[in-house]
Computed example of a mutant assay.
Amino acid sequence: MTADARFWNRIAPKYAESPIRDLDAYHYTLERTRSYLRDSDRVLELGCGTGSTAIALAPNAGEIIATDLSEEMLKVGRERAWNAAAANVDFRCCDVQSAPDGPFDAVMAFNLLHLLPDLEAALASIAAKLPEGGLFISKTPCLGEARGSWKYWLYTVAIPLMRLAGKAPSYVDFLDIRTLEAAVQRAGFEIIETGNYPADTPGRYLVARRC
């Protein structure tokens, strides 16, 4: 078991009880994502956590395979899916590289890409799971957009201290929007929609089509 798997397993009960910080932004991105899905689609979600997004989108897809490296997170997700009668959501424990092979109609990664040490390899793996025209839908905190501000300084100080205290994962990338979108394009995608939800981090919502 990796250090990150141990970290997310340990915090899973508290994470499951934590409220969504910006409900308006969350619901808006859910609606935008729904607009791209069809009820016959086979969808892969990477880093699904406790499954809230997969369950919310379950009525809009044929099948959702929801993956996470934390088995404790997935236990919560399975219980929530059972309670919601979301029978088309299948939870599997794995990381990005070992996620099920495609082809998928869409791959989703929400609040995940900034936690991956090798973004290029992850995006290449995602692209390999999609046919031409398949969709990659993500939202990523772009902490690097605050560079030069007091908020950026606070991030650079607080996150390492939180990691030492066992309250942050082993890796957090201070991505900016340009770097993120350039990496997505290099992986063979055409970006077709973007937006910041919420605007103040920002959380960069991105929809890209496999070329």
Rank of each mutant, 00 (worst) to 15 (best):
M1L: 10
T2R: 09
A3E: 13
A12C: 05
K14N: 13
A16I: 04
R21K: 09
L23Y: 01
D24Q: 12
A25Y: 06
H27G: 00
H27M: 08
H27W: 08
Y28T: 15
L30N: 00
L30A: 00
S35R: 03
R42K: 03
R42T: 06
C48S: 13
S52A: 10
I55N: 00
A58D: 08
A61E: 02
E63K: 12
E71R: 07
E72D: 11
E72L: 01
L74F: 02
G77H: 03
G77W: 01
R78N: 02
E79I: 04
A85V: 03
A87L: 11
V96H: 10
Q97E: 13
A99F: 08
D101R: 15
D101A: 15
D101Q: 14
G102A: 12
A109C: 13
N111P: 09
L112A: 12
L112C: 12
L112Q: 10
L113Q: 13
L113F: 15
L116H: 11
P117K: 13
A122M: 07
L123M: 14
A128Y: 00
L130Q: 03
S138E: 01
C142H: 00
E145P: 03
E145H: 06
A146N: 08
G148K: 02
S149W: 04
I159W: 15
I159K: 07
I159P: 03
L161T: 09
L164N: 05
A165R: 15
A168H: 13
P169W: 08
S170L: 10
R186F: 12
A187N: 06
F189L: 05
T194F: 04
N196Y: 08
N196G: 07
T201C: 11
G203H: 11
R204A: 11
L206H: 07
L206K: 14
R210M: 00
